[in-house]
Every structure is written in C-alpha cells, then in structure tokens.
C-alpha cells in the first residue's frame, strides 16, 4: 500500500469513481458504435468501402459540410458584430441585448424552426406583405430549400457564436487599444492589428462550437429543406429506424466523430487549444 501511494497520487482515488463512470457511460457506447461499424452486417470494412462506391453518401456528406461551413461563416460574423456591440455599449443596453439573446437561446428548436415557416413561408407574413404592397408578384421561395435551412440554422447558432466571443472580448485589457491609438494607429488599424488578433481564441472557440453543433442538425433541415436537403444526421436516423442498416449508420457516426477529432488536431498544430477552451496561453 505504501509503495502504491508512492507511485499513485492519492488524488486519483478521489476522481477514480468519476473516471470509471465516464468510461462506462460515455466511452463504451462510442466503442460500441465503432464496433458496429465494422461488424454489421458482416465483419470487415464493407461499410467504409461504401463511401468509395456510393456517390450518394459522398453527396450527403458534402451537403452537410457545405451547409455547416456557410452556417458557421454567417453565425460567427454576425455573432462577432453582436458581441462587439454588446461589449461597447452601456451596461443597461447590454443587459437588454443579453436577455434577448438568452431568450432565443432558450426557445425550443422546433418552435424556432416552425416560426420561420410562418414568417418566410410561401403564404407567410413577409411574402404576404410584399405581395400586398405590390413589390413582388410571386412569393419568394425563402423556405423549403437550402436557403431556408441556412436561415434557420444561422438563427439558431448565433447565440452559440456570441457567448464565447463575449467572454473573450470582455477579458481584453482595453488599455491596449488606447495605447495603439496613442501610438498613432487609426481605428481600423487598431481593430485589424490589435483587437482581432487578441480575440482570435474566442473566434476559434465559437467557430469550432458552431461548426461541430451544426454537423448534428436534424430538425431544421428536415422541416425547412422541404425534404430535398438531406444532411448526415437525418440520414443516420433513417438508417437506424427505417431501413435497419445500422452498420451504415454507425460508419457515418464514426466518420463524423473522427472528422471532428481531426479538425481539433489540425487546429492544435496552429494554436494552443487550451486558450480556446479558456485556459492560459502558456
């Protein structure tokens, strides 16, 4: 026992139950998925080989990645502006903005998705109003296509983009910007050369968060895409529940997992990921 103590810090005994819990409840289901992806319907890498054989699978993955990238660009850009405005306005206005942001954050995704249909649908408020004042003759197809999916997803993702950015902007030492102006830089120069680089960890954090969450979107594409925008999450659910091709579903899930891990690894080559997740730079 004494020898054991020497090699193992007693702290481990305290966190061991938690580690075991995480391992059994979290790692084992993931391992089960990985196992399923190489054993169902028959052992081997047949499920992964399908990626090479089927244009459709590649197209679904490409649609997913494309939509997620566009969603991320718009959410993070808009989120950056919102966070910037929040940090630089009066406390009272900031509180209003935060309340509005959190309100939309708390509303269920289903409600938010269907309200877009009411607003921008074929006979929705916007199309109705535009037609009534004679601006357009035919309703504009905002919904039931890829545009609709993007609108719904960007709207849902903005709070996720704002919150990490807000934290990172609030932590900045404002005197650095003053110093920059003092030394003769213009406002634009200060933003591009001082402010933006200093908020980069927050920017990366919100980009990662938004992109990874977007990958799993299911309800929004299913409802706003009119059935024509098929993303990986919905395809996985069909393979699990309707066509019983659990191997294909597991393969796609594993692919998403490794895709995200690979992304994190590539990021880690260029920057310290710990700063993104709130740690110190060194």
């Amino acid at each position: 026992m004494q020898a054991l103590r020497k090699h193992i810090h007693p702290g481990w005994f305290i966190i061991a139950p938690l580690l075991i819990l995480v391992a059994t409840l979290y790692l084992s289901p993931i391992l089960n998925i990985l196992w399923l992806s190489v054993t169902d319907p028959e052992p081997g890498f047949g499920n992964y080989a399908k990626l090479g054989e089927s244009d459709a699978l590649v197209r679904i993955i490409w649609t997913t990645v494309r939509i997620c990238i566009i969603t991320t660009i718009f959410s993070v850009t808009l989120g950056y502006s919102i966070a910037y405005a929040m940090v630089h306005c009066h406390q009272k206005q900031k509180n209003y903005m935060l309340t509005l942001l959190l309100l939309s954050f708390w509303i269920s995704i289903l409600v938010r998705t269907f309200s877009w249909l009411m607003l921008l649908g074929r006979n929705g408020l916007v199309n109705g109003a535009l037609q009534d004042i004679g601006l357009i003759a035919e309703p504009i197809a905002f919904m039931r296509n890829e545009l609709g999916v993007l609108i719904g997803m960007v709207h849902y993702m903005i709070p996720y983009a704002v919150l990490p950015l807000l934290v990172s902007m609030e932590a900045l030492d404002k005197r650095v910007m003053d110093a920059s102006r003092n030394l003769g830089a213009t406002g634009t120069q200060t933003f591009w050369r001082i402010y933006l680089p200093l908020t980069l960890p927050g920017l990366v954090a919100s980009t990662l968060l938004v992109f990874i969450l977007s990958l799993g979107f299911y309800v929004t594409p299913a409802v706003l895409g009119g059935g024509k925008v098929l993303m990986v999450a919905e395809y996985i659910s069909v393979q699990l529940l309707v066509t019983l091709k659990w191997g294909t579903a597991a393969m796609l899930a594993a692919l998403m997992l490794f895709g995200v891990l690979a992304m994190l690894w590539i990021m880690s080559r260029f920057m310290k990921l710990s700063t993104v997740f709130g740690g110190a730079a060194r």
């Binding site: 459709a56 197209r59 679904i60 649609t63 059935g227 024509k228 925008v229 098929l230 395809y235 069909v238 393979q239 309707v242 066509t243 019983l244 091709k245």
Partner: peptide, 14 residues
C-alpha cells in the same frame, strides 16, 4: 426491398 428502396429514393430527391 423497402430499405434499399427508401435509400434509393432519398438519394434521388436530395
């Protein structure tokens, strides 16, 4: 044939 039919259909419409 339902499983394959559903997948073929989804691939055709997406």
């Amino acid at each position: 044939n339902g499983g394959d039919a559903v997948n073929a259909f989804l691939e055709a419409i997406s």
